[in-house]
């Protein structure tokens, strides 16, 4: 299991897509490749943009298929962040597979 705290990277407003991409490439994907469950901990994060969440997880879902969502857990999310994550996971599951 790999637990990643978002707040130290983003502060209380998660909007920096460059940070999201960096987290995805350097922490989330390597953990998933080791077949670990990844926990993204949003404690102390008050809000996030759809663009941030998209940059954080969309490419993983697009490439690995939506089954990967079972291995991505979101912890300590407030209602706003839960809704934004749900928007992104929903629309990614409606995409045509690229492979």
């Amino acid at each position: 299991m790999k637990e990643i705290e978002i707040f130290p990277k983003t502060g209380n407003f998660a909007e920096n897509k460059d940070v999201a991409r960096e987290l995805r490439i350097t922490e989330i994907i390597p953990a998933l490749e080791k077949h670990q469950v990844v926990i993204l901990d949003f404690s102390e994060v008050d809000s996030a943009t759809q663009s941030f969440i998209h940059a954080l997880i969309s490419d993983i879902i697009r490439k690995e298929g939506y089954e990967i969502i079972d291995r991505l857990n979101f912890k300590n999310c407030n209602d706003t962040i839960k809704k934004i994550i749900t928007i992104v996971t929903d629309y990614m599951q409606e995409e045509e597979p690229t492979v």
């Binding site: 991409r21 759809q50 663009s51 998209h54 969309s58 697009r62 629309y91 995409e95």
Partner: peptide
Amino acid sequence: IGGTEFNAGAGLFF
């Protein structure tokens, strides 16, 4: 439709 890993094409709609 749906964009890339970095752009969803949703920001202005939001």
